[in-house]
Simulated assay, not measured.
Amino acid sequence: MQKDSGDPDVTRVREAAAGADWATVRGVLEARPESEDRTELLWAVGDTAGVERWIAGVIEAEPDSALPLLVSGVRHISWGWEARTGARAKDVSREQFDVFHARLRTAERQLYEAAEREPQWTSPWYGLQITGRGLQVGQVTARRRFEATVRRDPHHMGAHQQQLQQVCEKWSGSHEEMHAFARASAFGAPGGTPLGQLVAIAHIEEWLSLDAGPDAAYMRRPEVAASLRQAADHSYRHPDFVRRGAWLQVFNTFAMAFSLAGDRAAARECFQAAEGRVTEFPWYYINGSDPAAAYRKQRSSAGR
């Protein structure tokens, strides 16, 4: 079983970041144009401890370059959430919030500067969607940042996922708004895009919001299974679906959603298509410390 997308460049860029090897980091990132969505590569760098220590020197050495600012901005987002932790807001100290907000403000400044230098890039605006939620910029500003991202890449999966989070009940939205956004985005896009996954994510989000018992009952509703099948038909079952970009996450997300919905045949189809490769999202919702264990358990239940 292989964890994450299976893209060898992810491992390569992560190792280079850990070794403070900017030449390799830059080479890997520049070889993946924005038009092909380098979000996963940027996040592999951003999630690597210690990047914040050496990237400042790169910014100094390359004062006219947008890429070091972009990398630093993404690192400060991840570093900020490390300080906040994944705890509920009531369990996060004032000191933790202060560090969290300071790092996100640094990220915002650097991402805006990168966006000014490279107006066609999508990644800075995607990053600003995340900082905006952490800094609670409000729904109007958040929507503008989402629109800025999708103007540059209309079917950017990450941007749509961030906006879906923005309209979730837990982020001052509602279940109704979340489902409406997911369906409008999925079915407003051509058949075969990864955006059908948004419908599955929205059902998983509502499942997460419920207590044990009602959560399972919700996922077993016939209308939930029907909407999952409809989204699957418009997404990975569509003849125009291509296995590139976020394709592996699409199968993992539908595998989890169909498993929770009790549709073993549809879940098996997704597990088979994923070829034993597990993405952290969405399995960490079931087992945060070992997403692969959650994947294995559900795959076994589905008869794979």
Rank of each mutant, 00 (worst) to 15 (best):
residue 112 Y to N: 11
residue 84 R to I: 07
residue 72 S to M: 06
residue 65 S to I: 03
residue 90 K to T: 10
residue 154 P to A: 08
residue 108 E to K: 10
residue 50 G to H: 02
residue 122 T to Y: 07
residue 157 M to R: 14
residue 137 V to F: 07
residue 100 F to Y: 15
residue 71 V to I: 15
residue 151 R to W: 08
residue 126 Y to T: 14
residue 84 R to M: 03
residue 56 A to L: 10
residue 105 R to C: 10
residue 87 A to I: 12
residue 115 A to T: 01
residue 108 E to H: 09
residue 61 A to N: 06
residue 122 T to L: 13
residue 145 R to E: 06
residue 120 Q to D: 15
residue 121 W to A: 05
residue 72 S to N: 09
residue 62 E to F: 09
residue 128 L to K: 01
residue 101 H to Y: 14
residue 136 Q to V: 07
residue 60 E to W: 06
residue 158 G to Y: 00
residue 131 T to H: 02
residue 51 V to Q: 02
residue 99 V to F: 13
residue 86 G to L: 12
residue 99 V to K: 14
residue 87 A to C: 11
residue 136 Q to F: 07
residue 80 G to F: 03
residue 95 E to D: 09
residue 104 L to E: 06
residue 60 E to N: 06
residue 114 A to L: 04
residue 99 V to Y: 12
residue 148 A to P: 01
residue 109 R to P: 03
residue 132 G to H: 01
residue 58 V to F: 08
residue 92 V to N: 05
residue 127 G to Y: 01
residue 53 R to P: 08
residue 94 R to E: 13
residue 140 V to N: 12
residue 74 V to N: 02
residue 144 R to W: 12
residue 117 R to A: 05
residue 125 W to C: 02
residue 61 A to E: 09
residue 47 D to G: 05
residue 61 A to K: 08
residue 79 W to K: 05
residue 89 A to Q: 13
residue 157 M to G: 09
residue 98 D to W: 11
residue 47 D to R: 07
residue 131 T to C: 10
residue 117 R to H: 13
residue 130 I to C: 01
residue 119 P to R: 10
residue 134 G to I: 04
residue 63 P to D: 04
residue 83 A to W: 07
residue 127 G to W: 00
residue 155 H to F: 11
residue 143 R to F: 11
residue 118 E to T: 14
residue 118 E to H: 14
residue 130 I to S: 00
residue 151 R to H: 09
residue 100 F to G: 00
residue 91 D to M: 12
residue 114 A to V: 05
residue 108 E to F: 08
residue 57 G to Y: 13
residue 106 T to L: 10
residue 74 V to Y: 11
residue 83 A to Y: 07
residue 159 A to M: 07
residue 142 A to I: 07
residue 84 R to H: 03
residue 96 Q to A: 15
residue 61 A to G: 06
residue 49 A to Y: 10
residue 118 E to M: 12
residue 88 R to K: 14
residue 146 F to Y: 15
residue 138 G to P: 03
residue 142 A to D: 06
residue 119 P to V: 06
residue 154 P to W: 09
residue 51 V to S: 03
residue 137 V to Y: 09
residue 140 V to S: 11
residue 146 F to N: 00
residue 154 P to Y: 08
residue 81 W to Q: 06
residue 79 W to I: 01
residue 119 P to E: 05
residue 56 A to E: 13
residue 79 W to R: 07
residue 86 G to K: 11
residue 92 V to I: 15
residue 84 R to P: 00
residue 60 E to Y: 06
residue 50 G to R: 01
residue 121 W to T: 01
residue 156 H to D: 11
residue 102 A to D: 13
residue 116 E to F: 13
residue 159 A to G: 14
residue 55 I to P: 00
residue 55 I to A: 00
residue 108 E to N: 08
residue 65 S to C: 03
residue 46 G to S: 08
residue 148 A to G: 04
residue 101 H to D: 11
residue 96 Q to S: 13
residue 94 R to F: 09
residue 154 P to L: 04
residue 125 W to T: 04
residue 68 P to S: 13
residue 125 W to E: 01
residue 150 V to L: 05
residue 52 E to T: 07
residue 120 Q to P: 04
residue 69 L to K: 09
residue 134 G to L: 04
residue 68 P to Q: 14
residue 113 E to R: 05
residue 139 Q to K: 10
residue 155 H to I: 06
residue 95 E to T: 08
